[in-house]
Design a protein around this nucleic acid. Structure first.
Lengths: 225, 225
DNA sequence: CGTTGAGTTGAGCCGTCTCAATCCCGGTGG
DNA sequence: CCACCGGGATTGAGACGGCTCAACTCAACG
């Protein structure tokens, strides 16, 4: 979590304010008014005009893309503090929905040019968070292209544990179906693999279905490749 | 190819010059002196200090990551004009090698902060090309996570045709093994799928093994999903 | 409690992988 | 110009990981 987020950084705050003041849409974007989204509610949809980007205040957001026949790939889960929905062009290339209840602030965007040309601090933050998204996407490419179901699940669990940093008890806010579509698997394979991990005593699956206890992180880590 | 590359853009040139002038390493980075790499030669390696990023002048470069047991995922192929090797941290997270002979210019990097804080034009170009990499990575996530071998190959062929823009004859500079490691398949599956596409008269595989003729782009497009 | 939909488990199938044999382009030397 | 090689490319046969379809369980909620 060495994440310096755009909004938190004091210099960036000033920069954003400056940027917004210059933007014609500035009036529409009062700061600090995070909108609350219901579970499953759409934040934006593939193809929507990308007039803003977003920051997760609380809860989790998924960005995903649908193939014509309904196959879905979840690009990423965004946790509190994460930025998502930035675009090079003027349309969103993915859809975004709340996973469980979530609060999200919209940041009206000027053009990329304005962003980059504005105060260094903002440009730096935007660039850094774009690069972080890229890093995550690249790691995920390796997972999707070359890892087995077991390796995918192990990687995912450790990653979630690290990001939500709640000790060894991971609260998974998303459904099995979300996990499957993120890891390029089916629901059934996700279940079976979790069960198998429990059998191997790497994790524990309590009755509460969205909670997983990591029992043997070292073992899990060896499984991620 | 609506690619405005860092180096070509006149304003960016000035900005880079400015940036480099400020950088202690500036002397080491005479502009326009692209180094030539042999086929397969390593440009940088996973873990190397990331003191520079790169632009492909001619030829093709692959960036890839290796798992302990030898499984490989090729993140992307970079064609003439493409930028690669930019990092948020100070180490390269992937390896880069020339695919066939390639010429590459190194651009000594200052810190991200300097980059972003410098002339708007550079910041804008760096941000834009990072976002283009991100877009490509995201599209590739969908391919790796949810597409069949046939859909992967069809997508790949159309993408290469579009990027190298040589009409219907695609010169593939990379080996079957490279293609396989890019698409999350094996060499054999790549071969079989190409053969099947030829049987369906979507493509033609001439005797020259690194050339593929696209015979029915509409059909291919329908196959990409 | 009764209902409901997510989650789990089972059985069989299929797409892709593995292992192995063969092909043939592209280069070399005669 | 031709014969010969080496290594990438292709093809085949069988194995297997993950998928599909279907039944069942059970936590959550009214």
């Amino acid at each position: 979590m060495q994440t310096a987020s755009i909004i938190e950084h004091p210099a960036a705050r000033a920069a954003i304010t400056g940027l917004l003041a210059r933007s014609p849409r500035a009036a529409m974007a009062p700061r600090n008014c995070g909108r609350r989204y219901e579970s499953g509610e759409e934040i934006f949809c593939e193809g929507d005009p990308a007039g803003a980007f977003y920051r997760v205040e609380s809860g989790v957001v998924r960005t995903s893309k649908l193939l014509n026949d309904g196959r879905r790939q979840i690009d990423a889960f965004h946790l509190a503090g994460d930025i998502f929905g930035m675009e090079r062009g003027w349309a969103h290339r993915f859809s975004a929905e709340a996973v469980g209840e979530a609060t999200v602030v919209a940041i009206q965007r000027a053009s990329l040019e304005d962003m980059a040309a504005s105060e260094g601090a903002l440009a730096q933050e935007v660039l850094a968070s774009t690069m972080r998204l890229l890093e995550r996407a690249q790691d995920h490419l390796v997972l999707l292209g070359r890892k087995t179901a077991m390796e995918k699940i192990a990687t995912f669990l450790l990653d979630m544990a690290e990001r939500s940093a709640a000790g060894d008890t991971v609260e998974l806010p998303m459904s099995r179906s979300d996990i499957a579509d993120h890891l390029g698997l089916t629901i059934e394979t996700v279940c079976r693999t979790l069960t198998e991990l429990q059998r191997r005593e790497a994790i524990k699956l309590p009755a509460r279905r969205r909670v997983i206890v990591l029992r043997n992180k070292a073992l899990l880590r060896r499984m991620t490749m």
